[in-house]
């Protein structure tokens, strides 16, 4: 299968290791990964901040980048960005009166999957240890992102994949469905409320006793990780793609600057 990777702006710029891990997993399964080079951002930050006019060229760029090229499906390691591609992009096109863009946005949205959706629903992955060789001998707790839960209805897909990783130990997180308080510019515009939400999330993560908090959205992980870091917590955050990519031979390092060895034949 030819799979177009939508890295998302935040992963591309701040967490390249998550995109590399996504590539590793898909190539390990024998698929060909493409990276449409004109891609940038889904436009969610502009849209959720009310800057619809500014969002339009961002949306148009994404739709153009993913309307061309020969690929079967597109994938992003982010539920939030996929939800934006599927739901918000056509809305912005409609808002700006661009029916052609709306149609093309809908077509792109229909081919775009969040990583766990692609792995479970399309590629039939049910046992990461057996099918991907995933091995990760650490204790982790899992925070489901709001947009994964409520906009994409991912259910337990990410958690089930994690459970099937070799060597992993999952710890329960209390109040898993509670938002971490990120919410894009909400974290800045309503910094006090956002911080209060984060404080509670950090407390429950620390109470889980896990070494790592794992999730599927880099933005939430950036937020939670930033809160843990400020408290000099021993707990860090990690994207589930990196855990799936980790094997006994090429383990992901979880201390210091995390760098994943990715792609066959590379070091």
């Amino acid at each position: 299968m030819k799979i177009a990777l939508f890295a998302t702006c935040i992963v591309d710029a701040m967490f390249p290791r998550t995109a590399k891990a996504t590539v590793t997993i898909l190539e390990r399964l024998g698929h060909q990964v493409l990276f449409p080079a004109t891609q940038a951002c889904c436009g969610q930050m502009h849209i959720n901040s009310g800057y619809f006019d500014d969002a339009l060229p961002v949306v148009a760029n994404h739709v153009a980048a993913f309307s061309q090229g020969d690929y079967d499906v597109a994938v992003a390691p982010s539920a939030s960005c996929v939800a934006s591609v599927k739901h918000q992009q056509p809305m912005i096109a409609r808002h700006c009166g661009d029916a052609d863009l709306e149609n093309r946005a809908n077509a792109v949205g229909a081919k775009t999957y969040e990583l766990s959706q692609l792995l479970v629903d399309v590629l039939g992955i049910t046992d990461a240890a057996a099918q991907l060789g995933s091995y990760f001998p650490h204790t982790v707790t899992y925070h489901p992102s709001c947009h994964g839960m409520r906009l994409l209805r991912l259910g337990d897909r990410q958690l089930d994949l994690l459970r099937s990783v070799g060597g992993i130990e999952l710890r329960d997180l209390s109040g898993p469905d509670q938002c971490c308080g990120f919410g894009g510019t909400f974290a800045m515009k309503n910094a006090d409320v956002s911080s209060a939400m984060l404080e509670d999330k950090v407390k429950s993560i620390e109470a889980s006793g896990a070494e790592l908090c794992v999730g599927g959205d880099a933005s939430c992980l950036l937020h939670i990780g930033g809160g843990l870091s400020r408290k000099d917590s021993g707990t860090a955050t990690l994207h589930f793609a990196e855990i799936l990519a980790s094997t006994m031979e090429a383990p992901v390092s979880v201390s210091g600057e995390v760098e994943l060895l990715t792609g066959r034949g590379r070091s």
Binding site: C9, P36, A37, T38, Q39, A40, C41, G43, M45, H46, Y51, D54, A55, P57, V58, A60, N61, A65
Partner: peptide, 8 residues
């Protein structure tokens, strides 16, 4: 951000 995010 519009400028940064509207082209690769």
């Amino acid at each position: 951000a519009r400028v940064a995010f509207s082209s690769g």
